[in-house]
Amino acid sequence: MRELSLNILDIAENSIKAGASIIDISLTLRGKLLEISVRDNGCGMDADFLAKVTDPFTTSRTTRKVGLGIPLFKMAAEMTGGKFEISSKKGEGTLTKAVFVIDSVDFMPMGDIGDTMGALIMHAPNVSFFLNVDFDGRVYGFDTMEIKDVLGDDVAIDAVEVIDFIKRTVKENFDNINGGIIL
C-alpha cells in the first residue's frame, strides 16, 4: 500500500463485507497527529477474533475476510511513531483507529480520498457513507444521504456520472481543507 487513501479503502471494504449500513470515516488533524478512523455498524467480531485480527499469520484462510489489510494499516501508523487501535462488539460494529505522525519520514502520502469514496459508494450504493475531515478546526463533511436527497428516485448514486462528481467534489474539498499540510 503506497497511500493512506488505499488503506482507508481497504479497511472500509471490511465494513462493507461485515454488512454495515452506516460507515463513518474520519480524518482528524491536530498539530502533527493525524487520526484516521473507520466506524461501522456491521456484524462486528467476538473477543477471540478481535485479539488476533492484527496478526497476519494467525489470520488463516477461514478468516480471510480480514487478512492483510488491518496489519498493513497498523504497520503504516506504527512506522511513523503513531498507534493503532481496533475495538469491536459482535452484532454491533467495529471501530478501527490509527494515529499517524505527519512529519515522520515514513508518513505515507494521503493519495486521492475522492477516488476512495467513489470506489466505496460504487461498491455499496445502499450503504450510508460519511466522511468527516477536521484539520485543526477547518472542517468538511460529506454525506451520501445529502447526495441521495438531491438525486431523488430517478437517478442512482452509483451512476458513472454521479460517482465521477463525488470523486471530484470530495477531492476538491479535501484539498481545500488540507491546503498542502499533508502530501
Binding site: M1, G69, D115, M122, I163
Partner: peptide
C-alpha cells in the same frame, strides 16, 4: 477485484480507468 491484494497492486486506478472509458 478489490480485496487487499487487488488494492495494493493498483486496482483502484484500474477501476477509475474503466469508469472513465465507459463514461
Amino acid at each position: 477485484g478489490m480485496a487487499t491484494c487487488g488494492i495494493a497492486a493498483g486496482a483502484r486506478p484500474v477501476l477509475n480507468a474503466l469508469l472513465e472509458e465507459v463514461q
